[in-house]
Amino acid sequence: MEIRELTCINCPMGCRITVTMDGSAIISVEGNTCKRGDTYARTEVTAPVRTVTTTIKVTGGVVDRISCKTKEPVPKDKIFEVMAAINKSTSLAPIKTGDVLIEDCAGTKVPVVATKTVDKV
């Protein structure tokens, strides 16, 4: 039996979660105070994922750069590949919050979406 102590990163409450494992099988998840915590703990001990939030270059807009994020969390070990792909891209204004800026980012099948609205010059 292996016991893993985690801190849930879903919300700022930061619940301390204890996962008991037998090999790769999860025996129990304890300490979470909501369903998100249970899901987080199960994913974290098997295939950890993170949402990447960053900025992307904009042309033709009132500002040169806006914030964006991966629409879903991506595998943790792909974070830097996702960053490299976003830093190579440029988006054309106008852009609205939620607009897809990259369809499939760095082969993760996860789109990158704008988190801010930018008007055309």
Binding site: N10, C11, P12, T51, T53, T54, T55, S67, K69, T97, T115, K116, T117
Partner: peptide
């Protein structure tokens, strides 16, 4: 604050700072 983690209490979803303000 372009990172996520805002709004779980208010909107029941995880937003970035600019999205929360919007």
């Amino acid at each position: 604050c372009i990172h996520n983690g805002f709004g779980l209490h208010t909107f029941n979803e995880e937003l970035t700072g600019p999205e929360y303000a919007e």
